[in-house]
């Protein structure tokens, strides 16, 4: 039995969920500015909980991402993987995405929730969470295409000319 499918769905869901929350948090932060984090308010509590979810989601997601990569290489020979454009794309962007999540975890661990203080800080942090989630979604779709020959994202991927190279 192939191990890879067991290890790919859970963290993909978590990481795309963190991206969805990051979109919400970015909008809230831009609309309400510092007011969103006024201590004692319900909005601040929600904002804080979302921030915690993104942090732990990124940690769990990165572990899942590494596990998914390892099981992928265990299940199929490397030459078969690089022969397939979808797998090439997944391997390439999995490596880049892993770097993004290592950065996000490092910066959030070091700065705490102060990542949401400065404009440059929260924009970099929030946008990278969204980019990471979007990449996970695209890679998940490509896994779906490799297995089922189709995905709900196929029209978008075709429009973008992906996978490449």
């Amino acid at each position: 039995m192939a191990l890879h499918p067991v290890f790919v769905h859970f963290h993909t869901g978590i990481l795309t969920a963190t991206a969805a929350l990051a979109i919400f948090m970015l909008i809230m932060r831009l609309v309400f500015r510092e007011g969103i984090r006024t201590p004692g308010t319900r909005m601040a509590k929600v904002f804080h909980e979302f921030d915690i979810f993104i942090y732990w989601g990124s940690i769990i997601g990165l572990i899942g991402l590494v596990a998914g990569a390892i099981t992928g290489f265990m299940d199929w020979p490397m030459e078969a993987l690089i022969d397939d454009p979808y797998m090439r794309f997944k391997i390439l962007w999995s490596a880049v995405t892993s770097q993004i999540y290592v950065f996000l975890i490092f910066i959030r661990t070091k700065l705490g929730d102060k990542v949401w203080d400065s404009t440059s800080g929260f924009l970099i942090y929030g946008i990278l969470v969204i980019v990471g989630g979007a990449l996970m979604m695209i890679m998940g779709a490509m896994g779906g295409i490799a297995v089922y020959n189709t995905s709900i994202l196929s029209p978008i991927l075709d429009f973008l000319g992906l996978p490449w190279p």
Binding site: M1, A2, L3, P5, W76, D84, A146, V147, N149
Partner: peptide, 10 residues
Amino acid sequence: GGSMALAFPS
């Protein structure tokens, strides 16, 4: 989840 493993027909 494991039982959903299929092939890479491409």
